[in-house]
Lab assay of single mutants.
Amino acid sequence: LDMDCLPYGWEEAYTADGIKYFINHVTQTTSWIHPVMSVLNLSRSE
């Protein structure tokens, strides 16, 4: 699993305190969880 590779439309950013988060420019949303990890967690719960 390549954690450096973000899906299309996603960008890694940091808060003023240096905390990493992710921006989805396609849906105009943000997430604290890496988008690949959130997809993996969803697929495990099914």
Rank of each mutant, 00 (worst) to 15 (best):
G9K: 03
S31D: 01
G9F: 01
P35N: 02
H34P: 11
E12F: 03
E46W: 00
P7D: 07
D2A: 09
T30M: 01
S31L: 03
W32A: 04
N41P: 09
D17A: 05
T15A: 03
I33L: 11
G9N: 02
E12C: 08
S31T: 14
L42M: 12
D4Y: 02
T29S: 09
S43K: 02
P35R: 01
Q28G: 15
L40V: 10
W32S: 06
R44L: 08
T27S: 10
C5R: 11
W10K: 04
R44C: 13
D2Q: 09
E11C: 02
M3A: 12
P35Y: 10
L40T: 10
M37D: 15
E46N: 12
D2R: 07
E12Y: 03
N24K: 00
E11N: 03
Y8T: 12
K20H: 09
S31M: 00
L40Y: 07
S45G: 14
D2S: 09
L1H: 10
C5Y: 10
D4W: 08
D2G: 10
I33C: 13
T15K: 00
A13L: 04
S38I: 02
I23W: 03
P35M: 03
M37K: 15
L1M: 14
Q28N: 14
G9M: 02
A13N: 04
V26I: 12
L1C: 00
L40P: 13
I19N: 15
S43H: 13
L42S: 14
C5H: 12
G18N: 02
S38P: 12
A13W: 04
S38V: 08
W10C: 00
V26Q: 13
F22H: 05
T30D: 02
L6P: 07
L1V: 13
T29L: 00
H25S: 13
P7W: 06
Y8W: 10
R44T: 10
C5F: 12
L42T: 13
T30Y: 00
A16P: 10
T29E: 09
W10G: 05
K20T: 04
L1N: 12
D2Y: 07
I23Y: 11
E12S: 07
N24A: 10
I23R: 11
Q28I: 06
V36P: 07
G9S: 06
P7V: 04
L42V: 13
N41E: 11
E46L: 06
L40M: 13
M3Q: 13
Y8N: 11
